[in-house]
Write a protein that binds this DNA or RNA. Structure first.
Lengths: 370, 370
DNA sequence: CTGAAAGCGCTAACAC
DNA sequence: GTGTTAGCGCTTTCAG
């Protein structure tokens, strides 16, 4: 009998009490020591109400008596309650998050835009899931897929890279809201900067300033922005009946970052100088970072800016201010903000046609071309 | 009877069929048209197995017959199944995500570190939730809280800002793994760069090069990195029995970004030049961005680098290469990677004491001090 | 090896 | 107003 009693006890102990004791202890530890793992059930128990009521209170549902509300709130605060992120998201069938698929290489642009995105997203209380692409040629699709795992995000922001054609139907079919920033596709909302217009404005300024022999140093023309800026330059020249001096035009040979580097600008300027006896009266450069290289090359040859030659850049990066560079400003922070706004608009109303917002850049006049 | 029949029918129709029909239709649309919203139930039904089995197959559980596995996999592929992110995370009680609380202002540093983080995190298949802090004085705590909402992430990376003392117990109590990057707190793992050592190495190089009158231009000494770099400089001087020339030492007045700007360097150098008849033979500058300003100021006065005065910077930012700046390189990409590794280590084993990893920076010799 | 069932923590429709 | 219950979609025992 002693034996069977022990056996019985053992069985009973293991299967029931043990479990319960553990649970009780565990809850106790959680509540008292960790302030962690508190659920609406804990609150409901303490406040002597149902979990539905707790949920209602926590979600600001008005159909609760003030008395109950107070009580629940008090308990919740005392227990240091925090809703479980993913339980909410699952039940609500909403991710409360958006993702950004963004290339890392365009550093200057990157930071500013991201700042805008972050600030705006804060207004909505959403999370930002970042997918920084180091190598577009191999990683874009991978990250697109990750960022669209079912339920993960309510929308995606896609930056500065060629949107892979194969994924247009992917997004359309699943109805995942997406907005393209600094890149374009006819089927999706996009936010871009009018490079053509910016270059046009800069060139026009040069022309109105009385410069005749206007040169241009441009990054590789395969790159869309470079091409558009070049086109704007040509258009302004022809609109104002000015000559395009072939000899004062240099396209970067440097392939790194499509030629949008200081060194590419430096080299291109050296080439320009070496192949001419005279120098142009002004140079429009396709980016600030190149322009800094250009100015270096000029000063090495003892050529003064802006006295001997005027220089205008493009982008208005942080350093442009330091160098007193006259340039075309891209409102990057603003672009980030608008991108988020646009995305939320899409998320809240699956509307009609895609919209294409174009920001017109503005001229910032500093020392290199007064 | 006609009436009661209709009534009955109506009731029946509304309460049962209607609902079911809708569900069937809906599922149909989903499956066929949208490839979306497929659940393991759909797969189980199609493959004629239980949902448990489906889950097992999908999770690579070995206790499934090959035959069943094949069948399930086939159906899953055909239906274009994707697991619901948050359902998984909820059931697994694991977030499969980490967050980064990072200030936006330190742009150069920022990008590189983040690249490292992103690349490493990719290995683990985790998501990165980004909280970019624009205004540390007001936003840090807000973002810390957001990033620690229950269940949201498995760990957090905290960058470059003073960790708020009030939150030490917050993290400790909840047992949320955190690693500090580019900042320090005795109670948490941290990864920093040995600024002292870096400055020491740079100064030593200057000394061994035979320079006697070595000056220093430093950002605001309230800033920890600036202070540590200054201390390293002094130590090297005294270790090698060199004089510290008070007159060739300038601390930035500029408060913006603690004086880590091109303009601050430029102004400080002007001040150095204006208050001495002679110039030092070498200048150690507390950051590359300032060094660029210093070089500008020097060249404006016709002082040649490195012929008249040698310059060494700190950081090795992108532009340093362009300017041929000799500098102290911080392995930022590497730091990002290691930070993630360390965090995962913490997440997988709640170990003992916090570890403090210090990277020793290395000297990069370029033109400004051969 | 596999199906059924009990969670994970929360929301929302449904009764009373 | 408020408690109960049925999901959200997946994981993980627990029996066979």
């Amino acid at each position: 009998m002693g034996y069977s009693l022990r056996k019985l006890f053992k069985w009973w102990f293991l299967n029931l009490t043990m479990k319960k004791i553990f649970i009780i202890l565990w809850k106790h530890f959680q509540n008292k020591w960790f302030f962690y793992g508190i659920t609406i059930y804990d609150i409901a128990r303490e406040a002597k109400v149902g979990i539905g009521t707790v949920s209602r209170v926590l979600n600001g549902n008005p159909h609760v008596s003030d008395e109950t509300r107070r009580k629940v709130l008090e308990v919740a605060r005392r227990l240091n309650y925090q809703p479980h992120t993913y339980a909410q998201r699952l039940a609500k069938q909403k991710a409360y998050a958006i993702s950004a698929v963004i290339p890392f290489f365009i550093s200057y642009f990157f930071i500013e835009v991201l700042r805008g995105v972050q600030d705006k997203i804060l207004d909505y209380g959403f999370d930002l899931v970042l997918y920084g692409v180091n190598d577009p040629s191999t990683q874009v699709e991978h990250y697109i897929q990750k960022s669209t795992h079912r339920g993960k995000v309510d929308g995606v922001l896609f930056f500065s890279m060629k949107f892979p054609e194969a994924y247009t139907s992917y997004f359309k079919q699943r109805g995942i809201p997406i907005v393209l920033v600094d890149t374009f596709h006819p089927k999706f909302d996009s936010i871009t900067v009018d490079n053509f217009q910016g270059a046009y404005i800069a060139t026009k300024h040069l022309i109105e300033h009385g410069y005749e022999k206007i040169g241009m140093i441009v990054a590789r023309l395969e790159s869309m922005p470079a091409k558009q800026r070049f086109d704007g330059f040509r258009k302004a020249l022809s609109d104002y009946g000015k000559i395009f001096y072939e000899e004062y035009f240099v396209e970067s040979r440097d392939t790194r970052l499509d030629g949008f580097t200081r060194d590419a600008g430096y080299q291109a300027c050296k080439e320009l100088l070496s192949r001419n006896r005279e120098i142009p009266s002004a140079i429009f450069v396709s980016s600030d970072i190149q322009a800094i290289g250009v100015i270096e090359a000029l000063s090495e040859r003892g050529i003064k800016v802006p006295d001997d030659v005027a220089v205008i850049g493009f982008d208005d990066i942080e350093l442009a201010k330091d160098f007193g560079l006259t340039t075309v400003r891209q409102p990057m922070y603003e672009i980030g903000k608008v991108a988020v706004e646009k995305l939320f608009e899409r998320m809240n109303s699956r509307k009609t046609k895609p919209e294409h917002i174009k920001f017109t850049p503005e001229l910032v006049i500093r020392k290199t071309c007064p």
